[in-house]
Design a protein around this nucleic acid. Structure first.
Lengths: 201, 201, 201, 201
DNA sequence: CATGAATGAGTCTTCATTCAT
DNA sequence: CATGAATGAAGACTCATTCAT
């Protein structure tokens, strides 16, 4: 329980410090104020770089947003593969998934917020959060394997996925909004167990 | 089961047809393209009214968005009070809640979408969807009464609420995104039952 | 000295109270905030009438301004003819002119302000205040008669007029701006006498 | 008398040519058409720059107007200090003041017009022309020193100031309005002398 | 006569993006 | 690589004016 869990956050393009400063400043502002309310001048100020520098590293504001999104997704998937997929039983997977998301939220709320709210509705063509798209795939796969193995009862996979990801996302949302005051780590056990009650064969 | 359920959508200020046309056009566009990507000229075109008419009825684009939001919330609460609160047992309430939201989604997806995604993050100060704020209150109350009555097991109320509203919201989201192809009505029974498994004493 | 001096301010179009309310509200606002910063809605609020009423009585905002201007000029000329022109000696005329303007300022600052600042530069084609145009004529005539009579020394009539009207206007301006705290009546004697020193033969 | 008098008009921020072009175009238009009747597109056309350029150099139309005003005041004060304050006798000062204003009017009527009419009534909070505020201070000081030195008779200083500045302003006004057809330089001698008659001890 | 909802041209301003230095 | 002045299309909003009731 005391072993350190490291959340993957690979360095982007080593050597380009400026690019990283821009990335972080933009990520912070996009989450804080939203994509449209964040102007290039805002990022310029926050990152302490010049306008030109931004366009040197990203072809447009949109690409910058997409890049941040992509990074969030990649981190999510890497973490999921490493910590969730590797589990044997479905229950263990659900517990690991819960643990992953709750811990990550406490550790890097900005990134998780981007994953949840960064719904690039007005940016990207498709209208899905990470948790709807890549996260959905991952959750669905987990559910279907669980059913095949007879660990999860026969039910509509979408419903099963919705119970898992819906509950987790909602808890995170409540925590980020300040409506839950305790660290989410305290709820890992209970959340996973109750979700399991709804699904188990 | 066959009795017609009418969703409350009271007419605003009879006689002000234009106001209503503006309201509906804006609501549609805000959901479709998002608040910031919807310009006043867009609304003008969609509603077939003049720029001035919009500002005659709403003091600003923001107030227009707020008004739409408020209406959505009011309808939600009215429906909730009428259809859910009146139920006796907690299970019946959860079932009624599920039924309400799933049917409503099929009947007026635009309004429900506004309730879910209309998260006026960049508009209002607080960052909560209806389902986080008013909806949260409603769900929480339901949960706490259920616990007092011994129908729901003792657990963190936030978690219990998250299981209920998270699952419902996620199902609706998947449906609105086209990832669930069947009408949500088909899932009322199953969703309510499985949520109940996670909560019952 | 105690006899009541009445400043002419004939009623406009007896019977149309509304027109008068509009006139007064507009006059007040034009002086307070300037022509361009006063909107029709502003006048509607101040006068407590409807938009339509304004356009019923005046064909446009500009005409309203012109009407106010015209009225101010007419009052000025009527007062001038009655109180100044009737004087015998040039000194008496200057004294009467000074008295007229200073007393009027104390009695109806709004009207006088309109006369001075109401420079309808952006409204009318010509760029002259009352005091430049009609007032100029009046002053000039006074000056030229004084010269012919040998009371005023031979000098450029424009310069003579400028000394008279310039001094008076400046005093009024300082008073209206609050830089002179005593009523202008106290300065009638001194102002007239000193102006006279600059002009007398 | 034939020595060239140079009116101070220091260059602003060398290297920012555009800023200067904007400044001059706006100054011209504000004088010609008034602040409110001059639109940003008007300035864009007149200056031959882009909209953005204006906002790159000035934060708003209002700030632009204020900047022009400030510059006019600064030039006025610099000229006043250099040419008027340095004179020994009060008569010499009045003569120098007259000379300064009349010559300046002929040389840079736009700037002087801004000083006189640029009354930023609807822009600034206070309602005073340069000649009412900074100019007033300057004139008043001159008058009070003259009285202390026994050169000007004892009288209300406001009245004395009004005689001086009122006469000058009025002459300039008449000249700018085309009612005086000769260059004001021809009137320096006479104006100063007659003003002096009204004030001398 | 009076009303005030409706109009739409025009206003100031912002901001993503480019490019000469 | 980096800068930031310059661009201009597009945005939200205002307001004088009209007209059906």
């Amino acid at each position: 329980m005391a072993k350190e869990i490291v959340f993957r956050a690979e360095k982007r393009h080593a050597g380009t410090e400026l690019k990283d400063m821009i990335f972080k400043a933009a990520q912070k502002l996009f989450v804080e104020k939203g994509y449209h309310s964040t102007s290039i001048p805002d990022i310029v100020k926050e990152a302490g770089v010049s306008t030109g520098a931004i366009y040197h590293h990203y072809s447009s504001k949109e690409e910058l947003a997409r890049e941040i999104h992509k990074t969030a997704v990649q981190q999510f998937l890497a973490n999921f593969n490493e910590q969730v997929r590797t589990q044997k039983s479905t229950y263990a997977k659900i517990r690991a998934y819960t643990s992953l998301m709750f811990r990550w939220t406490e550790q890097d709320p900005v990134m998780v917020q981007y994953l949840l709210y960064g719904r690039p509705k007005e940016i990207l063509v498709r209208n899905l959060t990470v948790c709807s798209e890549e996260g959905l795939q991952a959750t669905r796969e987990m559910v279907e394997q669980g059913m095949e193995a007879g660990e999860i009862k026969t039910m509509n996979p979408c419903l099963a996925s919705a119970i898992i990801s819906g509950t987790l996302m909602r808890m995170i949302e409540l925590r980020l909004d300040g409506l839950i005051e305790h660290p989410l780590e305290e709820f890992i056990e209970a959340a996973a167990n109750n979700i399991w009650l709804a699904l188990k064969a």
